[in-house]
Amino acid sequence: MNQYFNNICTTLYSIAEGMAVTASYLFRRPCTIQYPNKLEKPMEDQLSERYRGILQVDTRVCIGCRICEKTCPVDCIAISLEKDKETKERFLTRFDIDISKCMFCGLCSENCKTSAIYHTKFFNAVTQNVENLVVRFVDKPIALYKPPKGSDLKNTLKDLSGAIVNQKMKGRAL
């Protein structure tokens, strides 16, 4: 009998408590970011510092070590190097990243010695053909970078807005 009335009291009390919690939410700020229509500030500023967006390669500082190619678990990076027989200079002739395969794990950019490959905050890569998602960073052979001795290699300037990728995909992306 005691249990019976106890049940009623706890039921009514807990319902009232629950209602008080939900009612308080009517006065709180919703946490929705209304992309892309009503943004309070640009999307790039709202993403966190280490956001893993689409990859971009700064071919000026790539040393051609191919570590990124080897670490990638899904093999979406393809690199070709060529050596000039006479001058013994090596060139980067191909650097393709298949964004459609990439799972944005960040392994490649973590292991790159010079931060030549890094994640941008650019993420809007909608396209009607999956082929368009293969980004080719090398148009004509580029001489490999030789880092000066004792320099801080990780400290290269990054273009986080992804202007290069954006440029590469322009005209092909939707």
């Binding site: 009232a16 408590e17 209602m19 008080a20 919690v21 009612a23 308080s24 009517l26 006065f27 709180r28 700020r29 919703p30």
Partner: peptide, 27 residues
Amino acid sequence: YVQRVRFNYFNDKMAFENLKGKSLWYP
């Protein structure tokens, strides 16, 4: 009931404002 609603609101106010740096008040 209104007191409980107020309590619930102010309970989370400080934590939210420290985290987001924005006012929680949005009726």
